[in-house]
């Protein structure tokens, strides 16, 4: 059994390596992904081992990265594109929304565009502007795209391979501030029969309040649950994993037991994922709810300067504050 302790970043690297080994059609492309191994080293060593035809350093142009990936996909390849930071995906937005997302539909199913668009996303690393954004709602709002986010090294390792194997275009959001967090990874875990990519998973069981999160906020919510337990409150934390499509079956089941639900994400609240989730949970669990579904999110401002990001980002206290408020109704 090859279970190793890896950081989330290294687990992604291992997953990419396995995908390159298992399928000669998989190619990695992006800015600085070769010799440098990407600015976060997620593709470290891959160009050395698989060559510059499989791990392609591209010119500095995001629209070019995604547009050429579409052509490669039409040609039968499975491009895995790295966008260097969340705030730099927008030059490619047209290609993603108008081309990547719609090709299968427009070809009446004759074309699949099995592209993975990896984006390190979210804040909390003290970066300058455009390096801390959470753009998931833009993509989740677009039919034809799938959007997922991993929260643990094991999930990072498996989900990146599942995303690459998927026939859909997948926007793969990597919680950049969790890249250095460690956890056990079963490197022999077979993909066949693995936990499905688009299914949510209960990350911690509890009886009093259901807390829903994905990506970087899963860790925050688990910490909040630990703190709440000291005060005698049991939070059930669900890692949604897939942002589009949403799998809320475990959330419904949980809310029917707890009667309370808090949704947490870094992205701004207005028209964010939390709005969709709150609406669906309310529709499904109306008679079980003891309070409205509450949201803990970033504010509806541009992502602020680093020295106030701590106040902008949902943290343990804000999650617990919302948990408290669900008991105030």
């Amino acid at each position: 059994m090859a279970t190793e302790t890896l950081t989330l970043g290294k687990a992604l690297n291992a997953g990419l390596r396995r995908a390159l080994e298992n399928d000669p059609k998989v190619v990695i492309m992006g800015e600085d992904v070769g010799k440098l191994g990407g600015v976060f080293r997620i593709t470290d060593g891959l160009q050395k081992d698989f060559g510059d035809q499989r791990v392609i350093d591209t010119p500095l142009a995001e629209s070019g990265i995604i547009g050429t990936a579409v052509g490669l996909a039409i040609r039968g390849y499975r491009p895995v594109c790295e966008i260097q930071f969340d705030g730099f995906v927008y030059p490619a937005y047209d290609q993603i929304v108008s081309q990547v997302a719609k090709m299968h539909y427009r070809s009446r199913g004759k074309l699949n565009i099995p592209i993975v668009i990896r984006i390190p996303f979210g804040g909390g690393i003290g970066a300058v502007e455009h390096h801390s954004e959470s753009p998931e709602a833009y993509f989740a709002h677009t039919a034809g795209l799938k959007v997922v986010s991993c929260a643990s090294p094991q999930d990072a390792y498996v989900m990146i391979q599942q995303a690459i194997a998927s026939e859909d275009p997948v926007v793969f959001l990597e919680p950049k501030r969790r890249y250095w967090e460690k956890g056990p990874v079963d490197l022999d875990a077979p993909l066949d029969g693995a936990y499905p990519l688009h299914s949510a998973r209960v990350a911690r069981t509890g009886t009093d309040v259901t807390v829903l999160a994905y990506g970087p906020m899963v860790r925050t919510c688990l910490d909040a649950a630990t703190a709440a337990a000291e005060d005698g409150r049991q939070l059930e934390v669900i890692d949604l994993r897939s942002v589009s499509p949403l799998d809320l079956s475990s959330a419904y089941e949980s809310v029917r037991r707890t009667g309370r639900c808090v949704v947490v994400h870094e992205a701004p609240g207005n028209l964010g994922l939390g709005a969709e989730i709150a609406a669906r949970v309310t529709e499904e669990c109306f008679y079980s709810l003891e309070s409205p579904v509450l949201r803990v999110t970033g504010f509806d401002t541009p992502y602020p300067a680093a020295r106030v990001e701590e106040e902008y980002l949902p943290d343990l206290d804000r999650v617990l504050d919302a948990v408290d408020r669900t008991f105030g109704w």
Binding site: N270, D300, T301, P302, P304, A305, R307, V308, E311, Y312
Partner: peptide, 18 residues
């Protein structure tokens, strides 16, 4: 900066949501 200043200057004339 004062944390509350992050709400300033999103729009020239403010917004009810903010």
């Amino acid at each position: 900066p004062e944390p509350v200043s992050m709400f300033d200057h999103v729009y020239p004339n403010g917004s009810p949501l903010l």
